[in-house]
Design a protein around this nucleic acid. Structure first.
Lengths: 233, 233
DNA sequence: GACTTGGATCCTGGATCCAAAATACGCGCT
DNA sequence: AGCGCGTATTTTGGATCCAGGATCCAAGTC
C-alpha cells in the first residue's frame, strides 16, 4: 500500500449531475427568472426519476438560484436588486481582507494572475463574453484560494452563482466597463505584488464598487418589469 | 410584533424537522464527531422514513456538520482546527465591515444590545452555558441584521453552526474568557453608539481575534485524541 | 500466523408508489 | 354573463421497493 490515493473520482451520483445541468441552465438564462420548475418534467427531460431532481432542487434552493415554497413548487429565483447589492457588500468585505492578506504574504505568485489578465484582455477583444465571465470568476477565485482561507473560498463559490447571473446580463451592454475590468484587475495584482496593502485594498474596493454600481444601474435600467414578478411576499 | 405574518408559515415539512433535530444533536455534542449516521436508524429513531432523512443529511452536509462520501454513508464532521481558524478569518472580515457600517449609520438602536449584554452577564454569573452561547450568537447576529445585509446574515447563519460547536467546548473551561466576552461586546456596541468607526472596528477585531486565539488554544490542548473517534450506539 | 479471497449482509442512491395539498376546471346559481 | 362552489387533475412530499456498491466475516493460501 502506497499513499492512500488509489480510489478517486467518485463524484458520480445522479443528483450532482442534475444540479450541474440545472445550475448552468439558470446561469445562462436558458430558464428565465420566475419560470416554474415541475419536478416530473425536469426529471424526464434529464432522463432520471424525480428523486435526484428533488435533491438537486433542494441544493439549488440553498444556493439561492431556486425559489420554493412547501407544496407550491419551485421556480427560478428572480433577479433581486437588493440581493445583488448585498452580495457585493459581502464581496467587498471579503475581498478587501483577502488582498490585504496577500499583500503581506511573501508567497504570492503573480504569474498565473498576469496570465489570466492577458487571456482576459484577449477575450474582451474577441467579445467572447462566456469566456470573459469564466475568467473573471477564475481571477477572483484565484485570489481567494491564494489567501488560503477555505471557508472564504467556499462561501464565495456560492455567491458567484448570483454574480454570474447578473454579470452575463451586464456584459452584453457595457462596453466601456468591459474594457476597464482587466485594468482594475491588473492594478489589484500589481499592488499585491508590490506589497502595498493599502493600495491593494483600495484597488479592490474600487473594482468591486464600480462593478456594483454598473450592475445596479444596468439592473434598474433594464429590469424593472420583466424580472421580479414574484418579489412581493 | 407581527408585521407580515398573515399568510405564510407553512414550515412543516418533515425534512426540516429532521434537519433541526440533527443539527441540535450535533451542536450539543450528543452525536460525537466522527460517529457514523445510518439513515435507517436515524429515520426510525425520529419516526419518519428514510426520505426526509436523506434530504436532511444533504443539507447538513452543505452546512459542514456532516461529512459524507458517495455510497459510503455519512458521519458527523470532525472538528477541524483549520476550519475554525478560517471561519474566524471570515468573521473578522465581515464583522469589521458590519460594525463600521453601523458606526456610520444614524439608525442604530443600542437598547436591544445593551439588554442582551445585561442578560449575558447574568448568564455568565449563573454559569448557564447554553444560554450564554445562545446570547452570544444572538448578539452578533443582531449586529449583522442591524447592518441590513441579508447575504451576510445568511452566510453567517451557516457559519455559526461551526462556531457553536467549538464554543460549547470552550466555555466549559475558560472562565477568564467567559468574563471578558461581554466587556468586549459592550466596547463594540458603545463605539458604534458613539459613532466611532475606527474604534468599533478595532474593538470587533480584538474580540474576534481573542476568541479565535482561545478557541485554537483550547482546541490544541484538548482535542488531539478524542475528536475523530468513530463511535457506535 | 498473517494475508488474501469468496460470499453473506448491510447500506446507500435511485425508482416507484401513495396520500394529501394545491390548482384548474366546469357546473350551477344569481 | 359573471361569480362562487365543488370536483377533477396536477403536483408535491413522504413511504416503500429494488439494484448495486461497500463492509464484514470466515475459510483458504502461502
Amino acid at each position: 500500500m502506497q499513499p492512500q490515493a488509489l480510489n478517486r473520482i467518485p463524484v458520480d451520483i445522479l443528483r450532482s449531475r442534475v444540479v450541474q445541468e440545472l445550475r448552468i441552465a439558470i446561469l445562462r438564462g436558458d430558464l428565465s427568472p420566475g419560470s416554474r420548475i415541475k419536478q416530473e418534467h425536469l426529471a424526464s427531460q434529464l432522463g432520471v426519476s424525480r428523486e435526484p431532481v428533488r435533491q438537486a432542487l433542494l441544493l439549488l434552493q440553498r444556493e439561492g438560484l431556486i425559489h420554493a415554497e412547501p407544496k407550491r413548487g419551485a421556480s427560478v429565483a428572480p433577479l433581486d436588486r437588493q440581493l445583488i447589492n448585498d452580495v457585493y457588500g459581502l464581496r467587498e468585505a471579503l475581498e478587501s481582507r483577502v488582498v490585504e492578506t496577500l499583500s503581506r504574504s511573501s508567497r504570492f505568485d503573480v504569474s498565473p494572475f498576469r496570465a489570466m489578465i492577458a487571456r482576459g484582455r484577449t477575450a474582451v477583444r474577441r467579445r467572447d463574453f462566456r469566456t470573459l465571465v469564466d475568467l473573471d470568476m477564475a481571477f477572483h477565485t484565484g485570489l481567494y484560494e491564494a489567501a488560503g482561507n477555505r471557508v472564504i473560498v467556499e462561501v464565495m463559490r456560492g455567491q458567484w452563482s448570483q454574480i454570474r447571473r447578473v454579470m452575463s446580463m451586464l456584459l452584453d451592454q457595457r462596453a466601456a466597463y468591459r474594457q476597464k475590468i482587466w485594468d482594475e484587475h491588473q492594478a489589484i495584482v500589481e499592488a499585491i505584488h508590490a506589497r502595498r496593502p493599502e493600495r491593494a485594498v483600495a484597488a479592490a474596493g474600487r473594482h468591486i464598487r464600480a462593478a456594483r454600481k454598473i450592475l445596479i444601474e444596468t439592473f434598474d435600467a433594464a429590469a424593472p418589469a420583466p424580472l421580479a414578478r414574484a418579489s412581493q411576499d
